[in-house]
Nucleic acid binder design. Structure first.
Length: 416
RNA sequence: GCGGCUGUAGCUCAGCUGGUAGUAGCGCCAGAUUGUGGUUCUGGAUGUCACGGGUUCGAACCCCGUCAGCCGCCCCA
């Protein structure tokens, strides 16, 4: 059937997730919840809408996200925004509900849709899904290592292999500004030999030059000073400790001094996981420490934190594609009386935990075809013979073997 | 926001230098088989050739615009 042009379609950059793909999503989310549980993380659900100011102050006005990628609208004089990420919201909720008064480190996880008005591409949607976690209330490098370990565990458990963990330290307000100046000075004599973008970045945001992917620029960039040689007396030992703790856990990583992140709130530890077959959107997750975020959102309580978010759309792409959840039994009633009988039988089987499909009418041949196409493990035939005998014909669709089974024995017969 | 490529049946795709769409594969429906699927055989249905305009005697094909998807840039999950 042709879909008329005036037919309403999903808006650009959004998409429908259909079965059997949704089974993969559910599997990933179930694994994530299980991993989070074992690390004593608990779920938080924040609104999809926030005051625009939250992201402006939290993520940073100068970032691309805030300056040009947000879904912002006026709500009777109040500027609201569809959340482009969730860390700012979680910290807002942490402050608002005085979670700093609760005992211990607050370990929170979330999963849900985020919105950014970017040009859609494979693995980049305007409504996309993230699974993330935040540990708030600890500035210990031990926490950094535990968070990174947890995320690796999560990825491994989903069946993802061949991913690559990159870590770095981006310093803190005490040492980063100084490094940026050092970098700016170092760039002055060489900027002219770099690409156009880098020449611009050398002025506006020298750190971004480090992230340049142009091959010809690499020799020059490699020769630039490294932030890791310019960390302060607090950041340097912190980063060293994170690496020690990761090594203790047998986690493989690569220190990439040129890893810079796009959100203003990151400081000290930052990390990223990439995967080969994602094209140019090769980053599956990103995270880092954000010790000053709570204060920049107006809290007078120092609440150091570290977290990450996984691009669920991208993770799902790299994970094995799923099959539809198996159907346990297909009921094929022959005739009106049998149909009524099938209704009560289906209810009984469902209450026993089996998935059941009942054909509301049609020939037996059609019923068997459908049972096969739906991937049913068993077909149960209810004809006059069966009802009179008080036994059903139970057919194993895989082996083709068929036998009689009494109602009382059905549950046991279906388990095999 | 910028650049490139693509858009034909439910899906994957043929379709010559413009001559009026394909016995294509898969899928779907029906029959061969009045209570038995998966293999096989036979038959059948479905397209405003993305949309709108232009050139032409004639456009799926050429031109312009729009929309959508993909790929790259920017940036990021």
């Amino acid at each position: 059937m042709k879909i008329p042009t005036e037919m309403i379609r999903a808006v650009k950059g959004t998409r429908d997730l259909l079965p059997p793909d949704t089974a993969v999503w559910n599997r990933v989310e179930t694994i994530a919840r299980e991993v989070f549980r074992t690390y004593n993380y608990h779920e938080i659900r924040t609104p999809i809408l926030e005051e625009t100011q939250l992201f402006a102050r939290g993520v940073g006005t100068e970032t691309d996200i805030v300056s040009k990628e947000m879904y912002t609208f006026d709500d009777h004089g109040n500027s609201l925004t569809l959340r482009p990420e969730n860390t700012a919201s979680v910290i807002r909720a942490y402050i608002e509900h005085r979670l700093d008064q609760k005992p211990g480190v607050q370990k929170l996880y979330y999963m849900g849709p985020m919105f950014r008005r970017e040009r859609p591409q494979k693995g980049r949607y305007r409504q996309f899904f993230q699974i993330g976690a935040e540990a708030i209330g600890s500035d210990s490098p031990f926490t950094d290592a535990e968070v990174i370990e947890m995320v690796c565990e999560l990825l491994t458990r989903t069946g993802l292999s061949g991913f690559h963990l990159l870590i770095n330290s981006v310093g803190c307000p005490d040492c980063r500004p100084q490094f940026v100046e050092t970098l700016r000075e170092a760039l002055k004599p060489v900027a002219a030999s770099l690409c156009g973008d880098c020449q611009r970045r050398a002025e506006t945001n020298p750190l971004r030059v480090l992230d340049c992917k142009i091959a010809e620029d690499q020799p020059v960039i490699d020769a630039l000073p490294s932030i890791l040689d310019n960390l302060c007396g607090v950041c340097a030992p912190h980063f060293a400790a994170v690496q020690t703790f990761l090594n203790d856990r047998g986690i493989e990583f690569e220190v990439k001094p040129r890893l810079v992140r796009g959100l203003d709130y990151y400081m000290r530890t930052t990390f990223e996981v990439t995967h080969g077959n994602l094209g140019s959107q090769n980053s599956v997750l990103g995270g880092g420490r954000y010790d000053g975020l709570a204060e920049s959102l107006g809290s007078n309580v120092h609440s150091p934190g570290i977290g990450f978010s996984i691009g669920e759309d991208r993770l799902v792409m790299t994970v094995d594609q799923g099959e539809a959840e198996a159907l346990d039994v297909f009921l094929a009633p022959l005739g009106d009386a049998a149909l009524r009988h099938a209704g009560s039988l289906a209810r009984e089987l469902r209450q026993a935990g089996f998935s059941v499909e009942v054909l509301a009418g049609g020939k037996l041949k059609r019923a068997m075809e459908l049972a096969n196409k739906l991937g049913a493990r068993y077909a149960l035939i209810l004809g006059d013979d069966e009802i009179a005998a008080g036994e059903y014909s139970l057919k194993n669709m895989k082996s083709g073997e068929q036998r009689r089974a009494a109602r009382a024995d059905l549950a046991a017969a279906l388990v095999d």
